[in-house]
Design a binder for these strands. Structure first.
Lengths: 190, 190
DNA sequence: CCATTTGCCTAAAACCCTTAGGAAAATGCA
DNA sequence: TGCATTTTCCTAAGGGTTTTAGGCAAATGG
């Protein structure tokens, strides 16, 4: 019987595609097996279990996002960098909703520490080099940016802003203007 | 055989408690049935299906959140209102992580339109009455606040800010200061 | 007090997860 | 090349969740 050539890599990539097509929480070991026309049990030599598959998809998504962000940020600073990063983030979520959901999948502390998530955090911090913030305000700002990007994209993906004026793109642009303004005029401790 | 006294209401409340204890996506029709010491099939006279259960838990959570927000906002305005709303939001998520996750559960358009989610959006808009914003900036600001609150709480719940200085409470406070400042100095269209 | 409605049950089919053990294909070393 | 080893995929099987169909007994109400 000819072999299918399964690999952890290929399985994870297939899982990521599946996530984009049917949603991250519809990604199942069985569905991936079907996609390779292979029996379910066969996947268990390449994956520890169902949770392992999801974690790996999450790591893939984080790495892809970090790569794109890094490329977008190269050679930019200040508002330019802020806009580029935001654009990548939102675009990725819209083009790959399943992968984006995967990237939000909770990871245990050590897995998270070894993930591309830390690279994303570093890139976020790098954006702030174009603004005049010192610790601890820089960290607060990193957290604010992370919250806005994640929050906005997540609400938008859930359909929160559809079918209502003004359209989402306009809000996104104006919110970035506002954040830029805020970072340039960060309030002192009251 | 004595009856268990099942009700859609009771099932949904039990599901919400279960969500807080073991996580929203571990909430299962079977688990709720076990909690009432009843056979699974019995629940299907009170719930259409598994998705129905989750949707109802989501609606319950949204309603609870809206109630608390409304109470917190009564008699407050400006930064006071902003802080009160934010406090309720974050507190609810920390005290009821499963319900909070449920509140983020995607709803189809009509269900969402009939949910307490619109009340929450109205309350968010009410906060902005204390600031000098006109349309469409007011809508942009509503979306920004929604994004920050949801994003921050969601990242925090996922463990994003734990084990790193400064602590999360401090960032939360300073981010609210920053938002207040931003709303008072909302930038004009460039 | 009996008829009807309601509530919970048993049964069963379909799907997913996971482990154990086997057979064939690929690999590698003599 | 030939044979032992490893790898890959399979069958088998146990256990869990979802959902529908049909039945009996408890509550309700005229």
């Amino acid at each position: 019987m000819a072999r299918a050539g399964l690999t952890t890599e290929r399985l994870v990539r297939a899982g990521a595609e599946l996530a984009d097509e049917v949603g991250f929480d519809q990604v199942t070991v069985s569905a991936v097996a079907r996609r390779f026309d292979v029996k379910v049990a066969s996947l268990y030599s390449h994956l520890r279990n169902s949770q392992d598959l999801k974690t790996r998809i999450a790591l893939l998504a984080l790495a892809e996002l970090a790569d794109r962000a890094a490329e977008a940020l190269a050679g930019r600073s200040g508002k330019d960098a802020l806009g580029a990063f935001a654009h990548v983030y939102r675009d990725y979520a819209r083009a790959h909703p399943g992968r984006y959901a995967a990237a939000r999948h909770p990871l245990d502390a050590e897995t998270a520490a070894g993930s591309a998530g830390v690279r994303i955090a570093q890139l976020t911090r790098a954006i702030l080099r174009g603004y005049d913030l010192t610790e601890p305000d820089q960290t607060h700002a990193v957290r604010l940016l992370g919250s806005v990007f994640h929050g906005y994209v997540s609400l938008e993906t859930a359909g929160g802003f559809s079918h209502s004026a003004p359209d989402s793109q306009e809000s996104w642009t104006r919110i970035l203007d506002a954040l830029d303004s805020l970072l340039r005029n960060w309030p002192a401790q009251p």
